[in-house]
């Protein structure tokens, strides 16, 4: 039992990725139960990064499969390169009679065929056609499939850790959801955000960080915004501030490099108007309301 207990606590975040406790639990649950882990969350909360760090943390190689609107489920298993074979037969290149030469395994196929347990990232599954997840049900359940052209069976020796991310652009089918472990990455609160920023900018001055985060969360609270700034934009913004050598005092009355945070024209204009009307930015957590009282 002790050994089994250890199994569940294998992933605990890495030096470069701060994961919340529920996320760690969800990852370990998916690893132990050998179920796909479905991750959703606001853009810029590190859904895709998670897979790389799970792969680092567990010491398993990683394969990624980036889904596009034209992706088909069958492409993930294998592709039969008929055009190459036709070309070879016409212009004489290689042994045309051996169909296996023209079967190329897709990411899912490679993960099954690999001798070691793999981490497989299926990125942005919602980009694909509505039927896409349904077409993968059996393969994800049984972790095996047959290459129709040759009759070969590809079966997973070690069931890969499957991490699926979704941006919520399409509804996923129920049958697919039932097989997944689900986790929604919440937007980090200020305390977690400080840890995340520390990973990227370890030597940041504490007062500056406070001012930066107050402005950042204040911006996110503004309901008029067309697009809220996300974690990755915050990190970029801090880089810009550091390079320009901005001091905490300068931040109090003004938000510099706003282009790093706000990506919509209307949002930037709204902020300029706020500036012109000499609106006052909050300078302490108290002004942001009770949610941020620390």
């Amino acid at each position: 039992m002790a050994a089994q207990q250890d199994d569940f606590h294998r992933f605990s975040g890495t030096a470069g990725y701060i994961a919340s406790a529920p996320l760690v639990d969800a990852v370990n649950c998916a690893v132990a139960l050998e179920r796909p882990l479905l991750i959703k969350g606001e853009p810029g909360t590190g859904k895709t990064l998670l897979a790389r760090h799970v792969s680092d943390g567990l010491g398993m190689p990683m394969l990624s499969w980036h889904i596009k609107s034209t992706s088909k489920a069958a492409d993930g298993l294998y592709v039969y390169d008929t055009v190459q074979r036709l070309n070879d037969s016409r212009f004489g290149g290689g042994d045309v009679s051996d169909i296996r030469r023209y079967i190329r395994l897709g990411p899912l196929g490679q993960a099954f065929a690999a001798p070691k347990r793999q981490v497989l990232l299926i990125d942005e599954v919602d980009k694909a056609d509505l039927e896409f997840p349904n077409d993968l049900l059996r393969e994800l359940d049984e972790m095996r499939f047959t290459v129709i052209e040759t009759g070969d069976e590809v079966a997973a020796k070690e069931r890969p850790v499957v991490i699926i991310t979704s941006n919520n652009e399409k509804e996923l089918p129920d049958a697919f959801l039932r097989r997944c472990i689900f986790h929604y990455i919440e937007f980090p609160d200020a305390a977690l955000m400080k840890k995340i920023v520390a990973v990227h900018h370890p030597n940041l001055d504490a007062t500056l960080l406070d001012q930066v985060l107050i402005k950042f969360y204040w911006l996110r609270e503004q309901s008029e915004l067309r697009k809220k700034p996300s974690t990755s934009e915050l990190i970029d913004w801090i880089s810009a501030l550091l390079r320009a050598g901005i001091t905490p005092d300068q931040l109090e009355a003004h938000i510099p490099f706003v282009g790093a945070l706000l990506k919509k024209e209307q949002d930037a204009e709204a902020l300029t108007r706020f500036d012109e009307k000499s609106g006052r930015y909050p300078t302490s957590w108290k002004e942001l309301g009770p949610r941020y009282n620390q």
Partner: peptide
């Protein structure tokens, strides 16, 4: 942890 675990297993949105 039971709360998080049950949520991850039971709730899919």
């Amino acid at each position: 942890r039971f709360y998080h675990l049950a949520r991850a297993c039971l709730v899919k949105s």
